[in-house]
Simulated assay, not measured.
Amino acid sequence: MRTALRLSHLSALLLTTLLLLCTAPTHAIKFELQAYRYPPAKCVWNNAHAGALVIVTANVGPGDGQRVDIEIVDSGPEKNVYLSKRGINGEARFAITAHTDEGDVGVCFKNYLDVAEGGQTRKRVIDLDVDIGADAVDYNAIANQESLSALETEMRKLEGVVKEIVDEMNYLKKREERFQSTNMSTRKRVQKFAWFTLVALICLGVWQIFHLRAFFKRKYLID
């Protein structure tokens, strides 16, 4: 009896570990952003499906004579702009919901240099964390709000992870169906073009025969 119980606990632990390994990790990056009068955008891109919660935490280091702007966009066909804010300092936290399945969500920064501070290379250090999907949910706040036990909180986390995995599988299935439809459409177009080429060559060959025959008759080379 104890052996069966231990096996049951081991199976549950193994399943939990596998589910946690399948989750999207937290994307953290730290970099220096140089200031310019007309700065280019430095973007960090992450994959996020439609309906996914995205939490962006940016910690901007100190820097005199500089202004850091942030913009959250996606690379989908509609080029959605979720957020645009100027002059962020210190730690800033933003939450958005992705709207596209056709592209990634990007967090873009620009570091503007004050004209009066020109002639010197200036930089600001940015520490960026991007949490997507189940990683973006604050389960501790949910547990406090709904008075959940530790076990219930873990089950809620696993429920979110499983839902994310199911959504990912459905997304991959839709992509496979779309690719298959595109493949079939391309095959039909290639077949139609091949038949058109064949018919055109036959018609051209017949026309050449009649044309040459008429030419030879005019020259009295054949009867």
Results as ranks from 00 to 15, higher is better:
172 L>R: 07
9 H>G: 09
39 P>H: 04
38 Y>E: 11
107 V>Q: 00
25 P>R: 05
127 D>M: 00
200 A>C: 10
144 N>M: 09
73 V>E: 00
86 R>Y: 07
20 L>I: 15
185 S>A: 11
154 E>W: 08
154 E>P: 06
223 D>A: 06
106 G>Q: 04
191 Q>L: 09
42 K>C: 12
111 N>Y: 02
52 A>F: 00
117 E>V: 06
129 D>F: 10
140 N>Y: 06
43 C>I: 04
151 L>F: 12
65 G>A: 03
82 Y>T: 03
40 P>M: 03
158 L>I: 12
131 D>W: 03
46 N>V: 15
169 M>A: 15
199 V>E: 05
127 D>C: 05
69 D>S: 07
74 D>E: 05
141 A>V: 08
171 Y>Q: 02
109 F>Y: 03
137 V>A: 01
50 A>I: 06
72 I>A: 02
213 R>T: 15
52 A>S: 04
99 H>E: 10
182 T>I: 07
151 L>E: 15
6 R>D: 11
162 V>K: 01
86 R>C: 08
180 Q>C: 09
8 S>R: 12
29 I>E: 09
38 Y>W: 14
189 R>Q: 13
142 I>N: 03
90 G>Y: 01
11 S>D: 12
24 A>T: 14
182 T>W: 05
155 M>Y: 07
118 G>E: 14
97 T>D: 00
82 Y>G: 01
186 T>V: 07
114 D>R: 06
162 V>L: 00
21 L>F: 08
177 E>F: 13
21 L>N: 14
126 I>R: 00
162 V>D: 02
50 A>K: 06
165 I>K: 07
28 A>H: 09
28 A>N: 11
105 V>S: 00
59 N>G: 04
21 L>P: 11
119 G>N: 05
217 K>M: 10
158 L>W: 04
51 G>E: 01
7 L>R: 08
33 L>I: 02
110 K>Q: 06
50 A>Q: 03
110 K>E: 02
162 V>H: 01
181 S>D: 06
70 I>S: 01
27 H>D: 09
190 V>T: 09
84 S>P: 04
36 Y>R: 05
181 S>H: 13
22 C>V: 13
159 E>A: 12
204 L>F: 09
7 L>H: 09
175 R>W: 07
205 G>T: 10
170 N>H: 11
188 K>T: 11
76 G>V: 01
54 V>K: 00
1 M>W: 09
59 N>F: 02
127 D>L: 03
178 R>V: 08
42 K>S: 11
223 D>M: 02
43 C>V: 03
146 E>N: 13
201 L>Q: 11
77 P>H: 07
210 F>M: 11
135 D>R: 10
86 R>V: 09
68 V>G: 00
189 R>N: 12
12 A>M: 15
158 L>F: 08
177 E>T: 14
174 K>L: 02
149 S>G: 15
101 D>N: 06
173 K>W: 10
15 L>T: 15
43 C>R: 04
57 T>L: 14
148 L>N: 12
203 C>H: 07
185 S>R: 10
152 E>F: 04
7 L>Q: 10
183 N>K: 13
48 A>E: 00
31 F>K: 14
159 E>C: 14
14 L>C: 14
44 V>G: 04
115 V>F: 05
70 I>T: 03
55 I>P: 01
71 E>L: 08
76 G>T: 02
68 V>M: 03
171 Y>F: 08
201 L>K: 09
100 T>F: 01
53 L>F: 01
24 A>C: 14
